[in-house]
């Protein structure tokens, strides 16, 4: 049974298109890894599914319901939760208050006690201000905050960013417990090996397009790495060695950068904000 379906999704920022006809689906309890270099559109895809960005074209369905036109807070109530890139906790709230913020009205296994059981280090620091916690503690709070909404779909954006490998290992050891609760996970991870090990299936994004997809166990690693870098032909052997995450080259095309010949930034089009969004 498919929980989340994304079909033919175009999205971006103002006049910069970041996603081109992206399609994917997530089955009940499944974990899918999203692989790609910086700027490939992984975070954009997650933010578009969560509702922070409104898609230009395409469908997003959750349990058969088209949610592409719904505002972000509504999607949260329907069961989409995100662990945003860079954690983005509410710094002036305590760790516990951060976890109590989600107001989705959804019941489920992830009570405060269950979350403290999952992350004992958060329980110990529950009354500390989130802004004063260590990076690992903050990441734990961010995951707990997302789970506290008892979501159907959990979007995890680079939980390993800026953390020591041992700390990241700790999070990935907890992943099976989270998966057992029935939530399906869309996981963005720079470290290809980690991503493949933790997921059932994997997708590779390159410059906003899905260039490769398959079962994590059966994917050809060399082909995946050349897809990751957008290399035209043979894989580079130096990049295939196992170990820490390969450092991707900085090759995306951010807005404002000269556009290579043959590729043009689309004309300015008014992109309606996803919903009244109040800047600060």
């Amino acid at each position: 049974m498919t929980t989340l379906t994304v079909a033919g999704l175009d999205a971006g920022y103002r006049d910069f298109q970041a996603l081109f006809g992206v399609s994917l689906d997530l089955a009940e309890g499944e974990t899918v890894a999203l692989i790609g270099a910086n700027g490939a559109g992984k975070s954009t895809l997650l933010m578009t599914i969560a509702g922070a960005l409104r898609p230009w074209r395409g469908r997003i369905t959750l349990d058969g319901l088209d949610i592409a036109g719904l505002p972000d807070h509504h999607r949260a109530r329907l069961g989409i939760a995100i662990v945003p890139e860079g954690r983005r906790l509410f710094p002036s709230l305590t760790a516990e208050e951060n976890i109590l913020v989600p107001t989705t009205g959804r019941g489920g296994p992830w009570s405060l006690d269950a979350l403290y059981d999952l992350f004992p280090m958060v329980a110990a620091r529950r009354s500390h201000r989130a802004g004063l916690l260590s990076g690992g503690e903050q990441q734990a709070v961010a995951i707990a905050r997302a789970l506290a909404a008892n979501p159907r779909v959990l979007l995890m954006d680079e939980v390993s960013l800026g953390l020591a490998p041992a700390v990241v290992d700790g999070f990935y050891r907890l992943l099976p417990r989270i998966q057992q609760s029935g939530v399906c996970i869309l996981l963005v991870e720079q470290d290809i090996d980690r991503a493949l090990a933790a997921s059932d299936r994997a997708l590779c994004l390159l410059e906003g397009r899905v260039v490769m997809a398959g079962d994590s166990a059966g994917l050809d690693r060399d082909r995946l790495i050349s897809a990751y870098f957008g290399a035209p032909s043979a894989p580079r052997s130096s990049a295939t060695k196992t170990g820490p995450a390969p450092v991707p080259p900085d090759k995306p095309v951010p807005p404002g950068k000269p556009v290579p010949p043959g590729k043009r930034v689309p004309p300015a089009r008014p992109v309606p904000p996803a919903d009244p969004e109040v800047p600060r």
């Binding site: 298109q17 556009v259 010949p261 043959g262 590729k263 043009r264 689309p266």
Partner: peptide, 17 residues
């Protein structure tokens, strides 16, 4: 709205001198 895919010839103005 429509995006020129790679491969479409670029208009002259976009070409470097």
């Amino acid at each position: 709205m429509t995006m020129k895919r790679p491969g479409t010839p670029a208009p002259p103005a976009a070409r470097p001198p």
